[in-house]
Simulated scan of single mutants.
Amino acid sequence: MHKKDFSYYVTRYFTNYLDREAGFSPNTIKSYRDTFILFFRYIELFRICKINKLNMDILSADNVNDFLNWIEKERQCTVSSRNQRLAALKSFCIYVIRENPEKSDICQQVLGIRAKKATQKSIGYLNIEAISYLLKMPDKTSDRGIRDLALLALLYETGCRVQEIIDLKIGDISFRIPNTVALTGKGNKIRVVPISQQVSEIIKNYLSISTRHNFEENIFVNRLGNPLSRSGVAYILNKYGDMARKNRLDLYPYKLHPHILRHSKAMHLLENNVNLIYIRDFLGHSSVTTTEIYARCNPELKRKYIEEASNFITETVQDYSKTEKNDLLEWLRKNI
């Protein structure tokens, strides 16, 4: 029988559990793998243990806390990155406990480490005028411009994550009334969001000039026919952002990033009196407490949605599950 040592659990965690059982996305798995590479580098750098003699003892609370402080101070990682590394190690510990309860003592040390509280940053977003002007930048007479317009319009219209639009297949779009897009989000969860007739026509125009018709093919590809990368999407957005900024610096005070279209869509939904529960589902958030960060960006929106959320709970709470009730109550506790 194979001895179940530290390397055994690490191997099984990455080759079997994360993908096949937990259903984590490739990006999450890569992030978790990077965490372990960094952790092993730290262990070796400070001679805590030789790399060929790794054991469960390296997961002591002191080692993990020192590792987290090291990546934050020495490697200049953000608090958010620090917390992501901790989350990866905690996930591994939960897996080990499930596989071998005898290892729970040392794993519980890691699970007891609290995430570091990060300073809440204001969310940058574009107003409606800025979105409209940005979508006028691509050249609608060229194949590349038609593709780029379709990409930007769909990023904003659906409020999707960059990886979601990279992974989007031709068969994920339905041109029946109502027009919809099926997005595969974190944890391989699929959500269906509506798109307007105008954006639907933009997508149809793009697909009409495409040589790809297989429903399983990616919609957005580069000149080599390969799916766009995250940096490719960022390049396209910044290209047109820079063009727009030359004429309207007032609308684009800073460099654009792909997530800004997602933020903008969320803020515009809030400004149009869409409740947080719907926006949560639209964006694919697991909890409304994640969605509420958008209400904090605007004092007037914050005041309005605190009032509306309060009325929503007292008047229609019976239509929602216990989890949803708790989410809304938690939102109120944080903001009132």
Rank of each mutant, 00 (worst) to 15 (best):
residue 163 Q to A: 08
residue 333 R to M: 12
residue 21 E to N: 09
residue 203 I to R: 00
residue 316 T to L: 08
residue 335 N to D: 04
residue 4 K to E: 11
residue 273 N to Y: 06
residue 237 L to C: 13
residue 225 G to R: 04
residue 329 L to D: 06
residue 300 E to W: 03
residue 222 N to M: 06
residue 232 G to S: 11
residue 225 G to L: 03
residue 281 D to W: 01
residue 209 I to N: 12
residue 318 Q to H: 14
residue 72 E to S: 12
residue 322 K to T: 06
residue 312 F to E: 07
residue 159 G to Y: 02
residue 223 R to V: 05
residue 194 P to F: 09
residue 254 Y to A: 12
residue 184 T to A: 02
residue 103 K to H: 06
residue 120 Q to W: 05
residue 99 E to F: 03
residue 318 Q to D: 11
residue 112 G to W: 02
residue 186 K to V: 05
residue 133 Y to C: 05
residue 197 Q to H: 13
residue 279 I to G: 07
residue 240 Y to D: 05
residue 292 E to H: 07
residue 309 A to C: 09
residue 297 C to Y: 05
residue 184 T to G: 01
residue 285 H to P: 02
residue 307 E to R: 15
residue 284 G to W: 00
residue 299 P to D: 07
residue 101 P to Y: 06
residue 245 R to A: 13
residue 272 N to L: 03
residue 197 Q to T: 11
residue 238 N to M: 10
residue 3 K to P: 09
residue 46 F to M: 10
residue 46 F to C: 05
residue 195 I to T: 01
residue 282 F to H: 01
residue 126 L to T: 00
residue 235 Y to C: 10
residue 146 I to Q: 05
residue 55 N to V: 03
residue 40 F to H: 15
residue 287 S to W: 04
residue 266 A to M: 10
residue 245 R to N: 10
residue 53 K to Y: 13
residue 287 S to P: 09
residue 37 I to V: 11
residue 21 E to A: 06
residue 199 V to L: 04
residue 132 S to P: 03
residue 11 T to S: 15
residue 237 L to W: 09
residue 254 Y to N: 13
residue 94 I to T: 08
residue 152 L to S: 00
residue 265 K to R: 14
residue 1 M to A: 12
residue 21 E to V: 08
residue 263 H to C: 06
residue 110 V to D: 04
residue 7 S to V: 08
residue 128 I to F: 11
residue 79 V to E: 10
residue 95 Y to F: 14
residue 117 K to C: 03
residue 91 S to N: 13
residue 249 L to V: 12
residue 218 N to W: 02
residue 325 K to Y: 11
residue 251 L to E: 02
residue 58 I to F: 11
residue 223 R to P: 04
residue 30 K to M: 07
residue 125 Y to T: 02
residue 51 I to N: 13
residue 296 R to W: 11
residue 134 L to I: 08
residue 202 I to E: 01
residue 246 K to E: 13
residue 16 N to H: 14
residue 118 A to K: 15
residue 212 R to A: 07
residue 159 G to Q: 04
residue 96 V to I: 12
residue 291 T to M: 07
residue 16 N to W: 12
residue 192 V to E: 00
residue 241 G to N: 11
residue 203 I to E: 00
residue 274 V to L: 08
residue 222 N to Q: 09
residue 83 N to Y: 06
residue 183 L to Y: 03
residue 100 N to S: 12
residue 125 Y to P: 00
residue 249 L to K: 15
residue 167 D to K: 00
residue 35 T to C: 14
residue 226 N to E: 11
residue 108 Q to K: 12
residue 110 V to Y: 04
residue 12 R to G: 06
residue 172 D to T: 02
residue 188 N to C: 09
residue 195 I to K: 00
residue 312 F to D: 09
residue 28 T to R: 03
residue 233 V to C: 03
residue 7 S to N: 15
residue 30 K to D: 07
residue 103 K to I: 03
residue 298 N to R: 09
residue 16 N to P: 04
residue 47 R to V: 05
residue 20 R to N: 14
residue 143 D to N: 07
residue 93 C to H: 00
residue 295 A to K: 06
residue 44 E to H: 12
